[in-house]
Amino acid sequence: MSMPYYVAPEQAMKDRADFARKGIARGRGLVALRYIDGVVMVAENASQSLRKVSEIYDRIAFAGVGKYNEFDQLRVAGIRAAELTGYQYSRDDVDARSLANDYAQLLGNSFTHGMKPMEVEILVAEVSVTGENDQIFHIMYDGTVIDHRDGCALGGDSDAVTARLRDAFTEGLALDDAVRLGAQVLGGERVIPADELEVAVLERGNGRRCFRRIDVPNDAAAPAESPDPEA
């Protein structure tokens, strides 16, 4: 009779984390950042129909990187949770924080108990009415939730992108500038072609439904004309 090998829990978790991280690193990343009227999300995405960024509810958006079928399942689950809450209580009772917690539960569960961890990282963003309380939640493959004030990066190379974003971010960006900044920090040395950028915003004052997709201008990812936008 054969005995199963003993695997230390530390090793098991590390193996799972490595597996998930590898899957996520294979895909292309995205960044979300605040601008004057809300939150803009810029993703590198060669497909025009398989979206990475989408609408969850009136003031809430979702973005995912990694395995498409897995984050798309999460997207639909989020829409369902939000619509059910809004229908059962009121549209005002739907918020990003509780959605982020639900996602964290789900991802955490699948990380520890599932056949394999989900190879995704997701983002839940919400714009407030006044602009003082916009929220960006970043949820990792293992259920870790991080909330960001100004913006964050997901997916392959996210540490470098986050560092570039942190250096370049300023308060009160106009939409065009925010899109350009997003594309630049996402690309780094590379220039991402406009038709491989997927851009959407949560925009205050856009009526009840704040989510809107944006056509990307051709020069979005081109290096800024002045060498340093802050100079």
């Binding site: 689950a77 989020g78 369902r80 949770a81 619509e83 059910l84 809450t85 229908y87 059962q88 639900d102 996602y103 539960q105 789900l106």
Partner: peptide, 17 residues
């Protein structure tokens, strides 16, 4: 409302009712 998940055959798809 906790996040609802469904098995493949039970998924309600696009029907909110």
């Amino acid at each position: 409302m906790a996040m609802p998940r469904f098995d493949l055959g039970q998924d309600p798809g696009t029907d909110f009712g």
